[in-house]
Write a protein that binds this DNA or RNA. Sequence first.
DNA 1: TCTCAGACTTGGAAGAATCTTC
DNA 2: GAAGATTCTTCCAAGTCTGAGA
Length: 535
Amino acid sequence: KPKEETKEKGENNKKKSEEEETPGKKRKRKSKEAGEEKNNKKVKKEKEEEKEAENKWKWWEEEKKENGIKWTQLEHRGPYFVPLYEPLPDDVQFYYDGKPLKLSLATEEIATFYAKMLDHDYTTKEIFQNNFFKDWRKEMTSEEQEIIKDLNKCDFKEIHKYFVDKSEARKALSKEEKQKLKEEADKIQEEYGYCILDGHREKIGNFKTEPPGLFRGRGDHPKMGMLKKRIMPEDVIINCSKDSKIPEPPQGHKWKEVRFDNTVTWLASWTENIQNSLKYIMLNPSSKLKGEKDWQKYELARRLKDVVDKIRAQYRADWKSKEMQKRQRAVALYFIDKLALRAGNEKEEGETADTVGCCSLRVEHIKLHPDLDGKKYVVEFDFLGKDSIRYYNKVSVEKLVFKNLRLFMKNKDPDDDLFDRLNTQVLNKHLQHLMDGLTAKVFRTYNASITLQEQLKALTNSEDSVAGKLLSYNRANRAVAILCNHQRSTPKTFEKSMQNLQTKIDAKKQQVEEAKQELKKAEDEFEDTKDPKAE
DNA sequence: TCTCAGACTTGGAAGAATCTTC
DNA sequence: GAAGATTCTTCCAAGTCTGAGA
């Protein structure tokens, strides 16, 4: 809802309550006090933000560091380690084959990971169940392994209920209790959530280690349900400056390593056990390091704007090249530019969900229609992109593109690569020649930005109301989302919300209908009371 | 030239906080 | 004041891209 409208409404309500102060005065005074308290809080917050803005490090006005050097001073407290596991109360039991079974601490902890997810779709998937059970059994004692052999005989319902109740109880806490919890969280944030970078206090993005749990891979991920192990200080590499106060590991522990590398931006890192890849603790987007990088990204996209016409002319010419690789490169680039597709790096088979980008498209992902719905040379795309989000689009392309695609698909099986002579390295190397720093992803940034700019220009007028401008802004944003294929799954409560809205619409319609009838009746009565002689 | 590790960005899900409605 | 809706924030999996080494 437009903010201005909300504000106006709030003020109207205030007036109304002032006018109507008769019965239940006490309650109203109380609510007025609460309102004032809320307002004070808001004003205080705004003032704090203003102060913060005044103290903001204007790094963009400073001289840039020499190539590759990210900082000269970096000091921090190290990561905040998530609390250790708290055993279940004695009256909350796990059942195997209908009988209660007391689990060892480690086995019980992993059981709670599964129990917490019981009403999630994940636990209905066979791969998830199998991966979980395999990893769970590895952590069991030999006695437990002897007994627990079938996941279907495991009953986690009581544990699940325990956590649901716990969450409800948390929601039902009094205002004071909630405030106390917030203060505790703020204290941790204050202590671990900031670092000193070149003399400035900077907010850290993710200062907590990731808690142990079950891996939630997206789409048909072959590793979903596997056990994500607890991160210990012994797994963590600390990065800071030599002359800074080096963070202390938790009592009785040691860091894996302490490093002083000022060519990177991370504060701490560890290797996760599912994909064996590195995880980092880095700064918040409001920080200099992230802000500068973001700025550079848009500057790069801005530079592309100046040469994009030349690049487009070049790839169009390459559609007729004698070299197959050049043709493939030119068609792929056309898709990346026109449809904002991602580059599409190669992936290790079987390690992740089967998803593709432009360069990794396979024959099975497109269909060619010489004529479709009155349009010529239509390419029908249907594939799973990043995060297994489906990309489905029917696009009318140029004749040469269409002919080339037909050629690329000739004598190939459905699971063969469409662009078999191309990969992202080859494509990016070519782009580097066209413009310094240019890579495939810059086209996505450029096209998203220019779409927003053009849509805003087309949809807004300076005389529009704020609400009107906001509506246009949302529409422009939607155009970008469509271009970039940004999608969300429908929320669980969607059906119900729609039903509620429909009920409201129906009620309003009924009201309008009744009002119309009343009006008609009143008009008829008025007609009847008129003196015919007077006319 | 290819492969792989490392560093970093991207963006959707989930949870928390806040606002609105009844 | 509770329930529901909306917005903001955090989390973290899944991408992109680079550079080193074989």
